[in-house]
Design a protein around this nucleic acid. Structure first.
Length: 510
RNA sequence: GCCCCCAUCGUCUAGAGGCCUAGGACACCGCCCUUUCAAGGCGGCGACAGGGAUUCGAAUUCCCUUGGGGGUACCA
């Protein structure tokens, strides 16, 4: 089977131009699952020198919003996924917003009606007899109740009967005539051959009684009109495919090749939902993830380049991406691995880039911190670059760098390094040493001052370093303290040290 | 319920009948380095869901079971 689908894909790729599409429905922000589908389409198009079409499927008037269309553009651009044709990019197969294609859909439906491939159904839009059975009522999610429609018999209505219903003001929907005895075969590029008994598909509706085309119908009309060669989409659409194939057949059209990619699951092995933390692309942006890292991570969810390489450049991804490398089973979104990957990208990000992106994030804080000039931030970021998983962590962990004001020492840091009178004595000593010695207050001067002090007093340098760290950063952990003090500057270093000495003196006195 | 899909370490995966004593990465656990945290180095833990069948030989092929997921709309 695998063999079959491979040769099939080779033929299609070899003989015709590759045209793929990403067809999001703007009913929400771009989801990581959607982003991955976009990514696979993009990778496939670029690998084959093909075309990526962006089609906005905004036919669900109830849930669609313009705001989300923009959000999807923004998310794709942030990920650096570019498209060749689309609502904004234009192209010769437009319009690319599905609601603007409504007339096309109606015309196509009329053709099918004329041929007798579909029939008018007067059952009405309400899902009939939706009373849940005992068992369904008892089920815990409460969503499993099936609206079981009684067998629709409109296929056998006489012309007079239809006229009567119409006269009564009932607008008909259009239903596909499906021979229940046959089977529909999907030859999927990743699944192989999948056979669906048509009896389980039923006479499905393609056009609603209000004249609106349904997803399965509109998708076929548009994919055909846009000359889509490969439909690469989430696995949840596999069950839709036989319906779409039936529509292609009714028109006598050659269907595109299909590739159903596995879906992304949460840790509980369920479809990703809002409750699983960040699931939208823009949330990752706000958290300070790098788009390069998210792309790399998503690419490896459900696809493997075959070897042992984990970190791939865009060029490498494009060069190596094939449908054959797509895995069949669902993948669980592992935040820990994304974090690791983000850190890897953070480590090699050029300093000026890192600085700019960090400042961008800092400016979104409220209130905006007072020390965010580029030279200063660059020094900070250089220090934090190897320790942070995200830009957000740089901003949070380095908060004491971005303000010239005082810091509130963390209780656990105090308890660990500043709990004794000895440690306070050391802090006082190091404070005086720093106040006296260094002229430039650069890292090596500071180090010399502290190590000299340690030597003179017969202590380990660490005995001074730890309390000082708590004083100037408020934390028990930080990058190398000499660099930290240097970047903070003499004034801030001494002021914070004094503040801690005072504060603690009071505490002890009480 | 019915239809369909899937099944290798906790997670992402490599694996196309002998190259498998099953490889890599994340996570986790040690040790080294050290100024705390990272980074880095070294090492460790850890999987073919179960049962049949085919074969000289099966993670790899077939069947069944089990488990997980998706779909079952006049949503997309």
């Amino acid at each position: 089977m695998r063999q079959t689908s491979r040769s099939l894909s080779r033929d299609l790729v070899g003989t015709s131009a590759v045209r793929v599409r990403f067809a999001p429905s703007p009913t929400g922000f771009l989801h990581v699952g959607g982003a991955r589908t976009a990514l696979f389409n993009w990778l496939f198009a670029r690998h084959n020198g093909g075309t990526l079409v962006l089609r906005v499927e905004d036919t669900d008037a109830a849930r669609y919003s313009d705001e989300y269309v923009d959000a999807i553009y923004r998310a794709l651009r942030w990920l650096d996924i570019d498209w060749d044709e689309g609502p904004d990019a234009g192209g010769q197969f437009g319009p690319y917003r599905q609601r603007e294609r409504a007339q096309l859909h109606r015309d196509a439906a009329a053709q099918l009606l004329a041929r007798g491939a579909v029939y008018e159904c007067f059952c009405g839009p309400e899902p009939v007899e939706s009373k849940p059975s005992e068992a369904e009522e008892a089920s815990d999610d409460g969503l499993s109740s099936r609206a079981v429609r009684p067998q629709c018999t409109c296929a056998t209505l006489s012309a007079q009967q239809k006229d009567a219903r119409r006269a009564a003001g009932v607008a008909p929907a259009l239903r596909m005539r499906v021979d229940p005895a046959r089977a529909v075969v999907v030859d999927d590029l990743v699944r192989g051959r999948v056979e669906f008994p048509a009896g389980t598909i039923g006479d499905f509706v393609i056009v609603k009684s209000d004249g609106g085309a349904l997803y399965n119908f509109a998708a076929v009309i548009d994919d055909h009109a846009m000359q889509i060669s490969h439909v690469i989409r989430g696995d949840e659409h596999l069950a839709n495919t036989p319906k779409q194939l039936l529509i292609y057949e009714a028109f006598g059209w050659q269907p595109p090749a299909f590739a159903h990619i596995p879906i992304i699951l949460n840790e509980a092995r369920r479809k990703l939902s809002k409750r699983d933390g960040a699931t939208f692309v823009n949330e990752y942006k706000a958290l300070g993830y790098l788009p390069e890292a998210l792309v790399n991570f998503l690419t490896l969810l459900g696809w493997s380049p075959g070897g042992n390489q984990e970190l791939l450049s865009r060029e490498e991804m494009i060069a190596r991406f094939t449908i054959e490398g797509v895995v069949k089973h669902p993948a669980i979104f592992d935040h820990a691995k994304l974090s690791w990957m983000n850190k890897e990208y953070l480590k090699v990000l050029p300093l000026d880039e890192l600085t700019a992106r960090t400042i961008e994030l800092l400016q979104r804080r409220s209130p905006v911190p007072d020390r965010i000039d580029p030279p200063h931030v660059a020094r900070v970021v250089q220090l934090l670059q190897e320790r942070a998983y995200t830009l957000g962590e740089i901003v949070d962990q380095g908060a004491y760098f971005f303000t010239s004001g005082p810091v509130e020492p963390a209780p656990d840091a105090i308890a660990k390094y500043c709990a004794t009178t000895e440690s306070m004595q050391r802090l006082r000593e190091v404070r005086d040493a720093l106040a006296a010695e260094p002229r430039d207050f650069n890292a090596s001067e500071i180090e010399a001052a502290i190590r000299g002090l340690a030597e003179r007093t017969g202590n380990k340098a660490a005995a001074f370093i730890h309390p000082l760290r708590v004083a100037i950063t408020g934390q028990a952990v930080s990058p190398g303290i000499f660099e930290v003090a240097s970047i903070l500057g003499k004034d801030v270093t001494l002021a914070r040290t004094d503040a801690l000495l005072d504060g603690l003196a009071h505490t002890v006195a009480k």
